[in-house]
Computed example of a mutant assay.
Amino acid sequence: MAPGWLPSLFGGARLRDPAYRFLFEPGPADEAVAIDCETTGLDTRRDDIVSVAAVLIRGARILTSQRFQSFVRPQAKLKPDAIKVHGLREADVAAARPIAAVLPDLLRFIGGRPLVGYYLDFDMAMLDRHLRRWLGIRLPNPRIEVSALYYERKYGDAPPGTQVDLSFSAMLADLKAPMLDQHDAYSDALMTAMAYVALSDLAARGIRIPRQPMRGAPSFEIG
């Protein structure tokens, strides 16, 4: 029995609605989903989601035609610091669907595919809080953290004392990926997908990111 199978087995046993058992079934071997949430604040117990987006990755292709985007009407008040980050105000999400109406569509989009994110644990904590109330589970999907992939490719062989920068902007600059409108859920999911594809390509070819500026960069296809 594979080590990662037991948590899925027990999670599936707790599932309150068998219609969502597909979450525990692996997706296509060459597919993953990049995901991002914007929120009312940074407290995973009290703040809430105001927008969520996801984009399908198939091999080295980012399929922007197959994406999920939704504003969400939050139960918590938007904090001023959060508004400064993503620009969404109460009026912008007042007519949006509540998370209970958004989640079924999101879950059908992601299926059992691995989820790719930048500091993904935060986004998953925000989603899992609602999933536990509704379905009795947390998302069972494998999770891929792009900052960890980036660290391994750039700093995995670094000597002690090396200064480490895992910021989104530093990662994208190293990978020669375009900086889109950061802190928009879809743009962040798309940039995360680009980073994942590029880092996966580097790892497959055994290439490390130099700790000096890169001259060349791996290619990826968006479409």
Rank of each mutant, 00 (worst) to 15 (best):
M1T: 05
A2N: 09
A2C: 00
P3E: 11
L6M: 12
L6R: 07
P7E: 05
L9D: 02
F10M: 15
F10V: 15
A13M: 15
A13Q: 11
A19R: 15
F22N: 09
F22D: 14
F22C: 07
L23S: 04
F24K: 05
F24R: 03
E25A: 09
D30R: 12
E31Y: 05
V33W: 02
T40I: 03
T44Q: 08
R45S: 11
R45M: 05
R46K: 07
D48H: 01
I49D: 10
S51N: 09
V52E: 13
L56M: 08
I57F: 03
A60E: 14
A60V: 13
A60Q: 07
R61P: 02
Q66P: 03
Q66M: 09
Q66T: 11
R67E: 13
F68P: 01
S70F: 03
P74L: 06
A76F: 12
P80H: 03
H86S: 07
L88W: 02
R89G: 08
E90P: 03
E90H: 11
D92H: 15
D92C: 10
V93F: 11
A96S: 14
R97N: 06
P98Y: 10
P98W: 02
P98A: 13
A101G: 11
V102W: 04
P104C: 11
L106M: 09
L107A: 07
F109M: 01
P114A: 07
L115M: 02
L120T: 01
L120E: 03
M124A: 08
A125D: 11
A125K: 12
L127T: 12
D128T: 13
D128L: 12
L131K: 00
W134P: 00
N141V: 08
N141H: 07
P142W: 02
I144Q: 02
I144F: 04
V146Q: 09
Y151M: 05
E152G: 01
R153E: 03
Y155Q: 03
Y155K: 07
G156D: 10
P159C: 02
P160R: 14
Q163L: 05
V164A: 06
V164W: 08
D165I: 11
L166I: 09
A170G: 00
A173K: 15
L175W: 05
K176N: 13
P178A: 06
M179D: 11
Q182V: 12
A185L: 05
S187N: 14
D188L: 09
M191L: 01
T192N: 02
T192H: 05
M194H: 01
A195N: 02
V197G: 10
A198G: 04
A198D: 04
A198T: 06
S200Y: 00
S200T: 15
L202I: 04
L202R: 11
I209L: 15
R211W: 05
P213H: 05
R215M: 06
R215N: 05
G216F: 12
A217S: 15
P218V: 10
P218G: 08
F220E: 01
E221Q: 04
